[in-house]
Structures are given as structure tokens and as C-alpha cells.
Amino acid sequence: MGGVTSSVAAKMAFFPPTPPSYALVEDAGAGVTTLSGQPHRENVELLRLRTRKGNTLAAMYVRHPDAASTVLYSHGNAADLGHLYQLFLHLSFNLRVNILGYDYSGYGQSSGKPSEHNTYADIEAAYKCLIENFGAKEEEIILYGQSVGSGPTVDLASRLPQLRAVVLHSPILSGLRVMYPVKRTYWFDIYKNIDKIPQVTCPVLIIHGTADEVVDWSHGKQLWELCKEKYEPLWLRGGKHCDLELFPEYIQHLKKFFHTVEKSPSHRQAWRESGDRIEPSQKNTDFFEPSRKSTDQREKSRSTRDRTRNTEHRYSNVEKVDKLKISFDQFEKSRRSVDIFERPKRNIEQLDCGRKSVDRLDRIWAS
């Protein structure tokens, strides 16, 4: 019964881009593999990884010469490495990190079929690659999970006590909770982040848009409340599900977070103790209003908060998009369908886009 339910859930939850947005091009003479449509770069390496489930994954490693951390990036739904190529270059350059991105089983040029448990095996293979192939250490690795990618990210983080940090970008409490406001965890639910996040012992940064139409902002807020080692969250006023990277605050806050977690152990301990003395804010958080702060952060004055309110729409101008070196049209096309679920609505209706099927639970029951 469990296998049947898992199979049904996979059909409802995963939407690999069809056809894939890229191909792997091998140049036997030069001994290099590139992404179709992209030039060869000395700091970019295309890989094939083998999982414990027997699937072969496509992966991409971007190296930064001055990196102090390595990011393991688990992307959202309906996206693959071809869509994320420019974003990875941008993050590596601006954050001064190495970054490894990979496609889940059944996505892009990865073999197999997508499923919850296959994604767990996928991220394990990517993590093993970082340790064995690139000499990364657990305490130097930052796991980054976007949307559905928060599932394998939280699962792995809950089992690695020495991780440097975790970033959860538009995360989900669980698959079922995206569709229905259930109060308990059911056995047939997938990606039970709500139950696993308390087991994550490293600093956790949560980023969420307040106008997310796919995964409600309440998911990010509740996960933040459950974190054992909270970091100042980033609530982006007006941010939706697929555009958070276009906000200037996005990269600024990531830089601040990475700088904090890369400090020496003594500095990090001081930050933890400082954070423990600050109680979560009980005020309305309809705009970016941090509740707990790292030691490099000071109490924001009322005028600073006012300036935050006044900048809520500045991120929309084209100059900010140019800074990302990714056109808005290209980015929207590549990241438009990056989630697995659609929010429940009063009258559960069938949406015209296949990836936003919202009546999955009823279908599971009907099966």
C-alpha cells in the first residue's frame, strides 16, 4: 500500500522539464564536458554521479578561488541545470563560494524516475561527491534547498550535526500542508520538514516572499519558529514564489549570513549566546522585520524600518535585473514552475498548468 501511495504522490508532486532544457556535450579531444549552449569555463565542471538507488545524476560544480564555504544546492520543481546555470555562476561569484548543483532522478539528464526517496538518495550522492571528489568537509558545507528542494535538504541536514549552515528558500512544511491546513502528520505525507527541522543543529536562514502564491508565507514562518538555531529570516514584502532572487535584499542578506557562519568558532558561539537572549518578536511581520539577530546586527531603528517599507517595490526596476546578469524574461522562463504544489483554495479547482494540480489528496484517497 505504501509503495502504491508513494507512486501516486510522485506523479502528483514532480514535474521534470520536458524536454530537458540542456544536453551534456562531451569533447573527447579536450577531455571536457559542457552544457549545451554554454561555453567551456575553467571553473565549471560537469559531472555524472551514481546514487545508491542505481540512478545516474547530472551535476555541475562551480569553483571559486577564494571560497571559504561550499554550497550544495537542491533546486525547485520543473527546473533543471540548464535553467540554473547563470544563477549558479552569479551566486558563486557574489558569495565567494564553491557551489554544486544537481538534477534529481528523472530531471534534466539524470536517469531514473523522480520520487521522494530517490531525492534523498540524490542529495546523498551529491554530498558524497563533495567530500570524496572535491575534499570538502562537513563543517564547510552549506545546504541550500529551494521549495521542493527543502525536502531533501532538511532530511540530510537532520543527519549531519557538523554542517556549517542551511538556507531554506520558500520552503514547505510538508507536501500535504501546502494543499490543506492539516494539524497532524499523516503517514502518506511527503517531505515532512515540520517534523525534521527541530533535529537540524546548525544555523538556519529562511527566505520567503510574503505574496507567495504557491507555498504560503506561513510555511516559512512556522519552520523558522521550529528551528533550533535561528538566524534573522528574510521576509520579502511582495515577493512571490519565483522571483526572490531579483530582490536586492536577497543577495545582501545571503552575504551577511555567509559572513556570520564563516566566522571562527568563538565568534559563532558569541552570536549563538546573543541570539538566545532575544525573544521572537510578537509584532505583525507583514514586512521584513527580523526577530532574532546575529552579533553583527544591531537593533534597527524605526526610521530603518520605515526605509524598508519604502523600498518594497524598488527591486522591480530593470537595473537590478541587469545586476544579476540574467534577463527577467529568461529568469522567469527558467524558474517559473519551481514548485511542486499549488496552495489550497476554497473551491479546489483544476488549474490549467499540469504542475499546479491541487487535488492530490482526493486522488490518493480515490486510489
Rank of each mutant, 00 (worst) to 15 (best):
3 G>C: 15
5 T>K: 14
8 V>P: 01
11 K>A: 12
13 A>D: 09
14 F>H: 09
15 F>Y: 05
20 P>R: 10
24 L>C: 07
29 G>D: 15
30 A>E: 14
34 T>A: 03
36 S>M: 04
44 V>G: 08
50 R>G: 13
54 G>K: 00
54 G>D: 03
59 A>G: 14
61 Y>V: 13
62 V>F: 15
73 Y>F: 13
75 H>V: 05
76 G>R: 06
80 D>L: 14
81 L>Q: 07
85 Y>T: 08
95 L>K: 11
95 L>H: 07
100 L>V: 02
102 Y>K: 02
105 S>C: 10
106 G>N: 08
106 G>D: 03
109 Q>W: 00
111 S>M: 12
112 G>S: 10
130 L>H: 04
130 L>A: 09
131 I>V: 09
135 G>M: 08
136 A>Q: 13
140 E>G: 11
150 S>A: 10
151 G>F: 10
152 P>H: 01
155 D>Q: 13
158 S>E: 02
163 L>Q: 03
169 H>A: 00
172 I>C: 09
173 L>R: 02
173 L>W: 00
174 S>H: 10
177 R>W: 04
178 V>E: 13
186 Y>R: 07
189 D>S: 14
192 K>E: 15
200 V>W: 02
201 T>V: 14
203 P>L: 01
203 P>T: 02
206 I>L: 10
209 G>R: 03
210 T>Q: 00
212 D>E: 06
215 V>P: 03
218 S>V: 13
220 G>R: 01
221 K>N: 02
224 W>S: 04
228 K>C: 05
230 K>C: 01
230 K>A: 04
234 L>Q: 05
236 L>Q: 12
246 L>V: 08
247 F>A: 12
255 K>A: 01
262 E>I: 00
265 P>H: 06
268 R>S: 10
270 A>E: 10
270 A>V: 13
273 E>G: 01
280 P>L: 08
285 T>P: 02
287 F>L: 07
297 Q>W: 13
298 R>M: 05
314 R>F: 11
318 V>R: 12
326 I>L: 04
329 D>L: 07
333 K>F: 08
342 E>K: 07
350 Q>A: 12
355 R>L: 15
364 I>C: 09
